[in-house]
Computed example of a mutant assay.
Amino acid sequence: MAVLVSRIDVPGVPDAVTTTAAEPLGSGPLSPVDVHGVRFDIALRGYRAEQVDGALERLAAELGERDAEIARLREERDRRDVDGIQRTGGIA
């Protein structure tokens, strides 16, 4: 028994990006920019792009909020440390 597999062009569906697996996200902390840059190959019977795009948008927004909160807390800590040193004339 032989099976023939072929790609059929479907109007409105972009050509596949590559025939290899998608590149994974890099190691280390992720930023919203990293998430916005993620692209997956589209294949016949692949993922629902709208659902994945929606999940990635939410993830990018939450990463942005997290990063902003961490930056705010660090600034608050640094300001408090500097104020303590200035008031006591040394390390608080």
Rank of each mutant, 00 (worst) to 15 (best):
R80F: 02
V38Y: 15
V17M: 09
V17G: 06
V13Y: 05
L4I: 11
E69H: 11
D81L: 15
D41Q: 09
G46K: 04
R80V: 01
Q51Y: 05
V33Y: 15
L73E: 08
E23D: 12
D83I: 02
L4M: 08
R45S: 08
R58F: 04
L4P: 00
D15P: 04
R58I: 07
P14A: 10
S31C: 02
A68M: 07
A16H: 05
R74A: 08
R39H: 06
A22V: 06
I8N: 09
V52Q: 03
A16Q: 14
R39E: 10
G89Y: 07
A92E: 13
G28L: 07
G46S: 01
Q86A: 13
A60I: 02
L56C: 01
H36F: 07
R39W: 02
Q86S: 07
E57H: 09
M1T: 04
T18R: 14
G54M: 03
T20A: 09
R72M: 01
A60L: 02
I42N: 12
A22I: 02
G12L: 04
L73K: 11
G37S: 12
A43Y: 14
P32S: 04
R45Q: 10
R79C: 00
S31E: 06
D34S: 02
R80D: 04
G54F: 05
P11W: 08
S31K: 09
I8F: 09
E50A: 12
G89S: 01
L73G: 01
Y47V: 01
F40V: 07
D15G: 03
P11A: 14
P14W: 00
A55K: 10
D9A: 14
E69P: 00
A92G: 12
P11M: 08
R80I: 01
A2C: 02
T19R: 15
A71Q: 11
P24G: 02
R80H: 04
V35E: 05
D53E: 08
G64R: 09
G54V: 00
R7M: 04
V33S: 15
G64H: 08
A49V: 14
G64V: 05
V13F: 07
L56V: 00
D78L: 05
S31I: 00
Q51V: 11
A92C: 05
R74K: 14
L44Y: 15
R48Q: 13
L30S: 06
R39N: 04
T18L: 02
G90T: 10
R87Y: 10
I70V: 15
G90P: 00
R39Q: 10
A22W: 09
R66D: 06
E75H: 11
S6T: 05
A43H: 12
L59H: 09
A2R: 13
G46E: 03
S27K: 11
